[in-house]
Design a protein around this nucleic acid. Structure first.
Lengths: 202, 202
DNA sequence: GTCTATATGGCGATAGAC
DNA sequence: GTCTATCGCCATATAGAC
């Protein structure tokens, strides 16, 4: 492992758990088993080191938005694939959403720099949904709300882990892990039931 | 307005937008139009001032969990009431969830002190759901997942405002406000469709 | 109660030896 | 490339005049 990788690993750990404002260069240096001066030798400023970690984190989350979007797939397959792959990502890095969301709220301008004019291909999603509606495979739903529903159901419980563990799971961390494990199928069937065709509007 | 209220107003504004680590006592003093020493005269430490703001914020969110839980109501009424009152709260204080969630992740122990052994009355919710299932008014669903689904659909778009605005709404803040306004009914019908009885499992 | 002035410590960053 | 030592600043907090 090179020194640079070593520093990035340490910085990732500290920034993700403490955020930019809460992180200390000294703590990153300790974590990496080196000293502060070397951090500045490699990355000049705290801000630059942070940029690396943040954009890396952001780019890990971003592709999942698009991965499941293969135009030929039917809606059930799309939901299953999207939910499954997103859960699998978040199970591996459960603190990522919190970090990204927290820092984006601290400095929303960061998004402009990272994303530019890139958008979710709402039109592609709309086309898929429209085709499935025409085929009577699903009930009408606004594509943007459909995507935000889906993402909310997946991501929010990771962001709100402490409060869910306290309020619903008796402060028991193991119960939280079980809860999350069960959730993947719960979310899939909750979504699929809602978009089933031929249900009377409530 | 007393000096103490004045300080609390300023502290609320600064802590909620910057978080504990990002907030500066000097900024709070400026915001209140007084000087730093007076902050310490009234609240001794930054930590103590923060505690006041945080527990106040937390206690504004908490009762909404319970407000709609009147045992005699049917499930449709429950969903409508819960979603509507929660949206109305968040429309008035859209930055609250971010603040509370962010600080709880920074220090989850805070919850133990604020909540003690208090829990969401899962049993009361389970009883309501079971009665509605027996009456054939809804399809079976696990009560904890049902509540987490509902809360996720409501709260997440407030927490993820910047990313939603960028990815789905072309960086347009007015589009975000429209989107949130439409969302209340979208969420209600999404939930109600999913729990409708007599739908084939997908 | 409210202010000015200051103590005290920690932070990011740099100088310079090796 | 890596270290020790230190600069300069800014943070929270306190002392003490009014």
């Amino acid at each position: 492992m090179t020194t640079e990788e070593n520093i990035l690993n340490a910085a990732r750990k500290v920034f993700i758990s403490k955020g930019f404002d809460g992180a200390r260069m000294q703590e990153i240096a300790n974590e990496a088993g080196i000293n502060k001066a070397l951090l500045h030798y490699y990355f000049r400023t705290k801000e630059r080191l942070f940029e690396q970690i943040f954009s890396e984190a952001f780019n890990q989350i971003r592709p999942a938005f698009l991965a499941a979007l293969q135009p030929e797939t039917d809606i059930k397959r799309f939901v299953r694939t999207f939910v499954t792959s997103y859960f699998s990502l978040l199970n591996q890095m459960p603190y990522l959403p919190n970090f990204v969301i927290g820092e984006l709220n601290r400095d929303p301008q960061r998004l402009v720099k990272l994303l530019g004019k890139q958008q979710i291909p709402v039109e592609a999603i709309r086309a898929m949904l429209q085709r499935e509606i025409d085929n009577n495979n699903m009930h009408y739903i606004d594509p943007r709300h459909f995507m935000v529903h889906t993402i909310s159901l997946i991501v929010f419980p990771f962001v709100a882990r402490p409060i869910i563990t306290a309020l619903f799971l008796d402060h028991n961390p193991e119960a939280y892990q079980q809860f999350i494990n069960a959730r993947q199928e719960e979310v899939i069937s909750f979504i699929l039931r809602s978009i089933e065709p031929n249900n009377a509007e409530a």
